[in-house]
């Protein structure tokens, strides 16, 4: 097992190299660079940037150098000094922006993930075991509503309700008075009060989808002969369902961890914009629009790494859960 994890980690190195190359290529792909979009932005505001300062900036940022030199400078700084470069747009080091946003993103995403699983797995089990019962139909209906309603509508709806009916301050993660305040119990409560909307909004559509997956998986497992065997032993219905078919029905869930992580980060951009959350999605979008190449590149790279880590985690979990996977190695 340990050897396997080590081997997997080793395989990640070339994959990461490939990914970083592709990330860098992608951010270089749009015509022009940050300076062209900067000059056009300045021109739009009626001023102009003289050629000398453009040249000076070009040389400063190394934009005139060939692709591979730029790539090398970028990646070697990241590896050797943890320096992700300079954000042109924000005038700040990328790493500072990155960790701020990443922290919030991972926090909100993880909470959503917990909520998704806490809802989807029990409801899915219930729906599969009591298939075609009233409860199943109700959850199926709610599930499809959850799938069908666009997240931003849901976000707007929840904001409207909590603002007009409960008079709560919504949007962002903190009320203005706590934004810069040091951590305290009141600030924490304020955070929780803001947090539930994004968490619910992000969770709802994924929950709906996962309920359907769980229901289908478990329905398949419930008709397997080993369930009859377990029943013939005299186990109670609850024990046997939890011990046997549910355990097997969870396998596909575990396999999805790999892509759940990055999708929670990039997939909730619209929600984050609507709710004005300091998450990674909006920042990445803005970085791509303004060709803030180092910032965008860093985000894409981090997301690739997260995907790889997610894949590794789900493979390890799968091997722990299912001895057949271990055996095949």
């Amino acid at each position: 097992m340990l050897l396997y994890i080590l081997k997997r980690l080793l395989y990640m190195v070339p994959t990461l190299f490939g990914m970083s190359l592709v990330s860098f290529l992608i951010i270089q792909l749009p015509p022009g660079d940050f300076l062209t979009s900067l000059t056009s932005a300045i021109a739009d505001s009626g001023q102009s940037l003289d050629q000398a300062s453009i040249d000076r900036l070009t040389a400063l940022y190394g934009l005139d150098q060939p692709f591979y030199v730029q790539y090398w400078n970028w990646i070697s700084n990241i590896i050797f000094r943890g320096d992700f470069g300079w954000s042109f747009d924000w005038g700040q080091p990328v790493s500072r922006l990155l960790w701020d946003r990443m922290g919030v993103t991972i926090f909100v995403s993880a909470l959503s993930l917990v909520l998704i699983w806490a809802l989807a797995i029990p409801i899915g089990i219930y729906s599969a075991v009591r298939r075609y019962s009233i409860g199943d139909y109700v959850f199926t209906f709610l599930g499809f509503v959850g799938l069908a309603v666009p997240t931003f509508i849901l976000a707007l709806g929840l904001m409207y309700v909590s603002f007009t009916w409960f008079g709560l301050n919504v949007g962002g993660l903190f009320s203005p008075e706590y934004e810069q305040a040091p951590w305290s119990l009141a600030k924490l409560l304020d955070l929780l009060q803001h947090l539930w909307i994004p968490v619910v909004v992000i969770a709802i559509s994924s929950t709906a989808a996962l309920i359907r997956v769980m229901r289908a998986n478990l329905s398949d497992e419930l008709s397997k002969p080993y369930v009859v065997t377990a029943r013939a032993k005299g186990l109670s219905e609850f024990t046997l369902i939890m011990r046997y078919p549910v355990r097997l029905a969870l396998n596909p869930f575990v396999s999805t961890i790999g892509w759940v992580l990055p999708s929670l980060i990039s997939g909730v951009t619209i929600t984050a914009i609507v709710l004005n959350l300091p998450m990674a999605g909006p920042l990445l979008l803005r970085a791509l629009v303004s060709q803030d190449m180092y910032l965008a590149g860093a985000f894409i790279l981090i997301m690739s790494v997260l995907t790889l880590i997610g894949m590794l985690l789900s493979d390890i979990l799968l091997a722990v859960l299912d001895p057949r996977v271990r055996y095949q190695r």
Binding site: K224, T229, G234, R243, P323
Partner: peptide, 25 residues
């Protein structure tokens, strides 16, 4: 009936592979 199953009456099935759980020893 659960008290009878497996204690007073027990059963052997046709497909020993699929009748045993693949993930339990």
């Amino acid at each position: 009936i659960r008290a009878i199953r497996g204690a007073d009456i027990s059963m052997i099935f046709q497909e020993p592979m699929s009748s045993l759980s693949p993930v339990h020893t």
